[in-house]
């Protein structure tokens, strides 16, 4: 779970590492503790499976969702509404920034540096060790450094999100934690939490456990 010693939470990582699912679940987690929670979708990279697809669900829970104006929502345009900066610095809100994947997604975070530096911000790097380019300590270290440079932020926490969707097993989660622990020891970056799906919620994890409900299930799933 997000570290509530901070008021702004930036979630970065490679494509498909699970940033948006974690951001959505974290917004709901924070909403249980705080009156005012905002989530900003600054994913200008991927045209599918973005926070903006779940606006209604979140707004019904009283969570403020910041996305491009509705008429541009499905455009392939890099739109960052000015409200993003406002909610980053607004002291009354716990704010989650859901970035796009890879270096390009993190570049957008870098563009918000002026706002992020004004507030207590934590940056999380999400890792699914079952993804391409994320299955060795060296690769993970390399991409932490690359994305951190683009985001113009030090990575404060790692998030262990090793999974194969519905085929996730305890073994996958634990071996992902093990790899991430090695990364953590080498880089000195602590692991904030380990994501586990609802159907494995009782397993024992090395790091604090965050049970995730999947939002982005789609019509093609039998």
């Amino acid at each position: 779970m997000l570290n509530t010693n901070y008021k702004c939470h930036v979630i970065i990582g490679m494509f498909g590492s699970g940033k948006t699912e974690i951001a959505l679940n974290s917004a709901i987690y924070l909403k249980e503790k705080y009156d005012n929670v905002a989530i900003a979708d600054i994913d200008v990279i991927s045209p599918y499976f973005r926070t903006r697809d779940e606006i209604d669900v979140l707004e019904n829970m009283g969570i403020k969702v910041i996305t491009p104006p509705r008429k541009f929502m499905h455009a392939d345009l890099p739109i960052i509404p000015p409200a993003v900066g406002g909610y980053i610095v607004n002291p009354e809100f716990q704010t989650i920034i859901d970035a796009g994947g890879n270096e390009d997604g993190s570049t957008v975070v870098g563009s918000l540096k002026n706002f992020l530096d004004q507030t207590k911000t934590a940056t999380y790097f999400v890792v699914n060790t079952k993804r391409p380019f994320m299955n060795t300590v060296e690769d993970i270290e390399y991409y932490i450094e690359r994305l951190s440079a683009k985001a113009r932020r030090r990575v404060d926490f790692l998030v262990s999100n090793s999974n194969l969707q519905n085929e996730t097993t305890e073994e996958i989660i634990l071996s992902g934690e093990k790899l991430l622990k090695e990364v953590s020891e080498k880089t000195g970056i602590p692991v904030a939490f380990t994501v586990v799906p609802e159907f494995l919620k009782d397993i024992k994890t090395e790091f604090p456990k965050f049970v995730l409900k999947r939002f982005l299930d789609k019509v093609y799933q039998l």
């Binding site: 498909g16 079952k130 993804r131 999974n163 194969l164």
Partner: peptide, 9 residues
Amino acid sequence: EKVMVKGTE
């Protein structure tokens, strides 16, 4: 072993 990938990948 299985990995998690996007269709394009």
